[in-house]
Amino acid sequence: MPDLCTTGERLFKELDQYIDSIGAEPDKLISVLQKAQELFGYLSSEVQQHIAEALGIPVSQVYGVVTFYNFFSTKPKGKVQIKVCLGTACYVKGGDRVLERFLEELGTKPEEPTKDGQFSIHAVRCLGACSMAPVVLVGEKDFYGRVKPDMVPRIIDKYKEVKVQ
């Protein structure tokens, strides 16, 4: 089992390689942050500092961008992130009831990871699959359409064992 320090170093190295491959220019900031979030799972102040130095811009600017966009997070999220759509089309089809059920089943609050760190539930606005409303997105690619609150426990069960996203 690799110890944490070397894992961290490896991730930073991988991030640097990515920055080199696309060019270290300020307009690449969002692409770099996307990559960093993919690697680290969230953007700690250490990671933000590192990116600021690599691109030659102030940390305040990096922090500004990180907190502006929904996609970026400065706190750890659950290993499995469940996004429940509350866009208008999903809302009128009962997206809010699906969200409630998820929170109830997992005993947690929106955006906060469960105690074991396995799940976090996020309310989002429109995933662009409105004909399938209400929609739930697990991780980055697993879509569930026409979700009814009763389907929630089954969806959760599927991901209880997932180790890394």
Partner: peptide, 11 residues
Amino acid sequence: DEGEPGTFKDR
């Protein structure tokens, strides 16, 4: 950047 809730034509 199709983000208007209810729209998915561009996608």
